[in-house]
Design a protein around this nucleic acid. Sequence first.
DNA 1: AAAACCACTTGATCCACATCAAGAATTTCT
DNA 2: AGAAATTCTTGATGTGGATCAAGTGGTTTT
Lengths: 252, 252
Amino acid sequence: MTSRKVVSFENIKVACKNCSLATLCLPMGLTPDDVERLDGIIKRGRPYHRGDHLYRGADKFHSLRVITSGSVKTYSPNEDGGEQVLGFHLPGELIGLDAIQDDSHTCSAIALETTAVCEIPFSQLESLSCIMPSLQHQMYRLLSREIGQETEMLTLLGKKSAEERLATFLLSFSERFKQRGFSASDFFLSMSRHEIGNYLGLAVETVSRLFTRFQDENLLRVERKHVQLLDIPRLYDIVQGCDSAKSTQSRG
Amino acid sequence: MTSRKVVSFENIKVACKNCSLATLCLPMGLTPDDVERLDGIIKRGRPYHRGDHLYRGADKFHSLRVITSGSVKTYSPNEDGGEQVLGFHLPGELIGLDAIQDDSHTCSAIALETTAVCEIPFSQLESLSCIMPSLQHQMYRLLSREIGQETEMLTLLGKKSAEERLATFLLSFSERFKQRGFSASDFFLSMSRHEIGNYLGLAVETVSRLFTRFQDENLLRVERKHVQLLDIPRLYDIVQGCDSAKSTQSRG
DNA sequence: AAAACCACTTGATCCACATCAAGAATTTCT
DNA sequence: AGAAATTCTTGATGTGGATCAAGTGGTTTT
């Protein structure tokens, strides 16, 4: 998220074939020819600023979106003014899949920092996927993956302790940054403690206390949005829920 | 689930075009010709008995499945022997969508009672959907709907009280039975209290106590698996989370 | 640079729900 | 049918994390 781009974009036409995210994104596994055809329907607008909405719940659905830089929060506003944070999305990730169902968005998406996206008009994508079986297959896989990820989140919210939730959260970012070529152990989180808590089903205070405790236990160093993971293996132990994680140090 | 079939199957070839579930199921919105073609790839085996697995986590994925009678629980076994119940599925519902991602099942599915299913070999479905845009569209919609439903579940587990969870659970069954032509207010639940609790992120005891309390408050009558909803509007009030639900009527 | 605001932290208290425990009602086994 | 196991209910007690409250430090406004 707040990491510098390594690649210079000078003189490079913005297109899937030149995009470093292609292996994570919709073109994943497509032939160069197919990527070219997919590229033909993609729109690239100007970036969003922090706080701008990419779309809001009940907006008419026309495009899927892939984050190309920055980060995005999706959330569903609930009846009484509150919201449920549904996810934080990094470059290469596809959002808006929930809106296919009835042609209107069921949740909102907002930029957490300066953020660029590719827009993929869905009706065109659909037509294209009819004549490109590999694209169709890729779409099915991505939709299925989204389902699998939400399933994991159900287990997190249904069964895990606050400690396990935060460890899972941190390792998820660690892995995703690593996939994108950034440090797995040193990164900036673009969302607030409040948003983390909302996402994980915890109060802000609990999140704050856990950060402090993890730091006291030398699992990480944290200063505001900047996080350094010092003991990733032990964080994985915590995620497992086996209190053997605590053996190294102790606990009451 | 434990409701009698209204339609006699004598002399009716088992096929989508004669199936009373067609409007809820994959054929929804397809032309009769298209339904015929879809029907051509569907396999119908003999029924499963209570406790039989339709598939298990890590099984190779080959088919999606639609429940045609009975009911099914899906769950993901977690590391330490426990499980997270992911859903309870009624006739017309499609399961196995999470397995498309990498050709292997990520969760398990088990029959809660005598249960019949249609199997839809996925590779054939994929081929067919390439030449039947309306089927492709239907698939995208069903996958998207699944995502939307899991999203609602995230809010349930992240933000709702035990009371709200059980009310939501009951109304979900009420609506789904109604859609299927059964009573919205009088039905049998095929799963145990333990399974309900697991699904809702609650202890068995909490579920049991809530049933008792709802009964004391004349919201419903319950005897073992048999549930009669006596005040559906008030259950909806509870789902909203406004405690004005407890005043005889009204809304905050 | 002071003022106002906001995100975050830390401590004290509370409570919804888990856990523990024991009995009652059912179902399954022999 | 009787025994054993399972499921469900109910009561007593415990606790993880919410809520309440009061700073603290950083950021924006003027």
